[in-house]
Simulated scan of single mutants.
Amino acid sequence: MPVPKWFDDGKIGIFIHWGPYSVVGAKKGDRGYAEHFPRLMYDEPDYYYPLLEQRFGAHPPEFGYKDIIDHFKAENWDPDQWASLFKDVGATYVVFTAEHHDGWANWDSDLTPWNAMDKGPNRDLVGDLGKALRKQGLKYAPSTHRERLPNHFNLREPGERQSLL
């Protein structure tokens, strides 16, 4: 597929990674990104388990990533406000991660029960943002990282790092 003209010509684009991992909002130094938390929390228990214990009162195996999803509510999220802000700063397009490596879908997915309509926010975040962006005349390109899901939580030797690229 050719790259759309609006993508090449866009001066400012907004790329959003947002999901249950945002509830914790933690990462260890320069190791990965916050959205890699779902896997890193199991890879580096010495660092992440105390954070989980402090924040939620438990850690794996009693409390795992699936339990964080209940805390991802997006209760203050206003897609119209986001779209207006993006337009005001000069963005011409927005790419929102519809589904990240953790298997969480920010949309009303039939592919997984782990989605924003059935759990957490109980709303279609991808659809709501799309409507708001279109009202502002912005281009919208939801992305999915589902192809990386099978390797995201696979077991490795302690300390062995798997490339996420």
Rank of each mutant, 00 (worst) to 15 (best):
3 V>A: 15
3 V>N: 15
4 P>L: 05
6 W>I: 10
9 D>P: 13
14 I>Q: 06
17 H>G: 07
21 Y>H: 12
24 V>L: 03
27 K>L: 07
27 K>R: 14
30 D>M: 09
35 E>S: 08
36 H>N: 04
38 P>Y: 05
40 L>R: 01
40 L>N: 11
40 L>C: 04
40 L>D: 09
42 Y>I: 00
47 Y>C: 04
49 Y>T: 07
49 Y>H: 10
51 L>M: 01
52 L>R: 00
53 E>P: 03
56 F>L: 06
60 P>T: 00
61 P>W: 01
64 G>K: 01
64 G>S: 09
64 G>I: 00
65 Y>Q: 03
67 D>Q: 09
68 I>F: 08
69 I>C: 05
70 D>A: 13
72 F>Q: 07
72 F>W: 15
73 K>R: 14
75 E>C: 07
75 E>H: 11
76 N>W: 13
78 D>K: 08
78 D>V: 02
81 Q>F: 08
83 A>W: 01
85 L>H: 11
85 L>I: 00
86 F>L: 02
87 K>V: 02
88 D>P: 04
88 D>R: 05
88 D>H: 06
88 D>F: 08
89 V>G: 03
91 A>Q: 05
92 T>H: 08
93 Y>I: 04
94 V>K: 01
97 T>S: 07
98 A>V: 02
101 H>D: 10
104 W>P: 06
106 N>R: 13
106 N>Y: 10
106 N>P: 11
107 W>P: 06
109 S>L: 03
112 T>P: 10
115 N>Q: 10
115 N>D: 11
116 A>Y: 07
117 M>G: 14
118 D>L: 14
122 N>C: 14
123 R>Q: 13
124 D>H: 08
125 L>N: 06
127 G>K: 06
127 G>C: 06
127 G>T: 07
128 D>C: 07
128 D>T: 05
129 L>E: 02
130 G>P: 03
131 K>G: 10
132 A>E: 03
132 A>N: 05
135 K>D: 10
137 G>L: 02
138 L>E: 01
138 L>D: 02
139 K>C: 14
139 K>W: 15
141 A>P: 13
143 S>E: 13
143 S>F: 13
144 T>L: 12
148 R>P: 03
149 L>N: 11
150 P>W: 05
151 N>H: 12
152 H>F: 15
153 F>Q: 11
153 F>A: 09
153 F>S: 08
154 N>C: 15
157 E>R: 08
158 P>Q: 01
162 Q>G: 15
164 L>W: 15
